[in-house]
Amino acid sequence: MSQEKTTREPLFSAKNMELLRKPLNLDNPITVQVLGICSALAVTVKLEPAIVMSISVMMVTAFSNLIISLLRNTIPSRIRIIVQLVVIATLVILVDQLLKAFAYDVSKQLSVFVGLIITNCIIMGRLEAFAMGNKPWPSFMDGIGNGLGYGIILVIIAFLRELFGSGTVTFPVIGELRIIPQSFYAMGYENNGMMILPPMALITVGLIIWIQRSRNRELIEEKK
């Protein structure tokens, strides 16, 4: 839809960097657009699967945005959902096979949630809202930005849940680090088992939204 073809923009112009920065806070896919929660919360018990999941989603969002943006003038609008689904599903199969080959344990932990990236609303949402009407490079940047915005929330939730739930933090490659020292346990500190259970993921998101919206008053919803 944008028809400014007169001057070539530099690749990292202010406008393009804005596309990358906005989803991190003011236009965050999870806390503001409320997309892609489906597969997000179940993988946040430990930090490692959360990081792997964020990278996978970022890759799929970026490349599906790029591909759909390249094809945007040739896709008939009646069948666009099917075309988008095929592109996304192909990328997700690639990610799944790569994970199975190089990170088998994590891919077992993620189980069906890798497949569920296909129906992750962030990806469909960004394709519909951005890639169908913009040039390939901004679309790619938008995909990376939204993937990062998704990842940052996932990592925060997973960090908090693992720290308070198990007293450890697990990074990919490095492995498990014990943060809360053994002497705390000797003095009677107990892990909060509640943090590992599914409902706490939702409550943690709720609290993150609370903090974010208190800091950015313009995000507060109108009272009806």
């Binding site: 806390t31 409320v34 993921a201 409550i203 998101v205 709720g206 939204i209 609370w210 919803e221």
Partner: peptide, 13 residues
């Protein structure tokens, strides 16, 4: 700040 989405998450939890 919790209005709308935020409180819905906490309620679901």
């Amino acid at each position: 700040p919790l209005r709308g989405v935020g409180i819905t998450f906490i309620l679901t939890g």
